[in-house]
């Protein structure tokens, strides 16, 4: 009888403790994979631009739309906590744009991208540029289904940003050191910034650019073209 009672207790405990092993971001990751397959099937290059507020993301996008618009159809998904200012700038530059206001949310998630794509309907072979919410923390964790994240670090920030926000620089395939034309007026150590980015991510591609003067943009566009070619060449 004693054995039975013991077995019964063990069994009831087994029933009340349920092993889930459930990944907390599983839903976002699944939706991101769906976006990724959608992009791949249409040979669309999707880049997720991430940075602190004020790094010059929108200006870089405006330049890219003007400079690359004749080579590829470019559509933009704009994430901001509030206002439609950025999307108005993007449309003025000549690209269709969907603005996602995240409200109190500090990053874009994969379902927001899916909704944006449903509205934008980017054609085969186009480019979708996603401007994430200005924030170097949260967007690193949320896969949107993009081909690559591109971090933008302006030289008016600290050169130790890659060490302070390693998740973001590790998750990014390239970093743009923007506002490089301002370096003569600043104490920003460009080489140190590059070294810090490589400490965190040895494989990261680095481009020194100025969205204002156009300096260095040709090399960055070269990288974008390589990525677009890789997307077209990858088997579905």
């Amino acid at each position: 009888m004693h054995g039975y009672a013991h077995d019964h207790a063990a069994k009831s405990e087994q029933e009340t403790i349920v092993t889930l092993e459930a990944r907390l971001l599983a839903k976002n990751d699944a939706l991101a994979e769906r976006n990724r397959a959608w992009f791949r099937g249409r040979e669309i290059l999707a880049l997720n631009l991430v940075s602190s507020p004020g790094s010059g993301k929108t200006t870089l996008l405006e330049r890219a739309i003007r400079d690359l618009g004749s080579e590829a159809f470019i559509a933009v998904i704009e994430g901001d906590q509030a206002t439609v200012n950025d999307s108005e700038r993007i449309r003025a530059a000549g690209a269709p744009c969907v603005q996602v206001n995240t409200g109190t949310g500090c990053h874009l998630e994969a379902d927001m991208i899916a909704r944006g794509l449903a509205e934008l309907k980017p054609p085969v072979g186009s480019m979708v540029l996603i401007e994430n919410v200005g924030n170097l923390v949260c967007p690193a964790l949320f896969d949107l289904g993009e081909h690559a994240k591109v971090a933008i670090l302006s030289v008016t920030e600290g050169e130790d940003k890659p060490l302070k926000y390693p998740h973001m620089f590790q998750a990014s395939r390239a970093v743009l050191l923007n506002k490089i034309d301002l370096v003569p007026h600043l104490d920003f150590d460009v080489e140190k910034a590059v070294e810090n980015a490589r400490v965190v991510n040895p494989d990261i591609a680095v481009f020194r650019v100025s969205a204002r003067t156009g300096e260095g943009l040709a090399a960055w566009y070269g990288w974008v073209r390589e990525q677009a070619a890789a997307v077209r060449a990858s088997p579905f």
């Binding site: 009831s12 403790i17 092993t19 889930l20 092993e21 459930a22 907390l24």
Partner: peptide, 12 residues
Amino acid sequence: ELKIKTIELEEA
């Protein structure tokens, strides 16, 4: 890691 390992439920 970022996951729920287990949950403990009230007995049915």
